[in-house]
Amino acid sequence: MDNSRTFTLDEIATLAELPRRTVRYYIQTGLVDRPQGVGKGAYYTERHVEQLLLVRKWQLAGLSLERIGEVLRQQTSGPLPPAPRRKGTVEVWSHLVVADGVEVTLDPGRAGLNPEQVRAFFRGVAEVYEKLQNGEEER
């Protein structure tokens, strides 16, 4: 394809087999760059088409749009930063009750702990707590 070719929003939507609203949404959320030029002079290039196809590829692989945005913005080599936590969202946390009044709060997903590790961790904490309690009694 000719690299200098330009497209309208309609055309790139057709090329990527996506509704216009969806393409516009990707642009609005920063997954795809805004067009060159303004107003009636706005146009899109090959690069925009590539970006659209890339988003589609990631989406088919099962990524959420939010995560795709983070992946695309990732510039450096190395591990992805954990998904940033949006203020005002409600999260799932496990509360491990050690004793009345003592609680350990964790999100095993974020912490990267598997169930065995969570149990091991909890056993450890419980042991420490018990030791403390027993120490009190001995004294």
């Binding site: 409600v90 799932v92 496990s94 491990l96 009750v97 009345d100």
Partner: peptide, 13 residues
């Protein structure tokens, strides 16, 4: 709350 019980919050996302 009994010891060792896991209370789950909302698994939303």
């Amino acid at each position: 709350i009994p010891t060792g019980r896991i209370m789950r919050g909302m698994p939303l996302f």
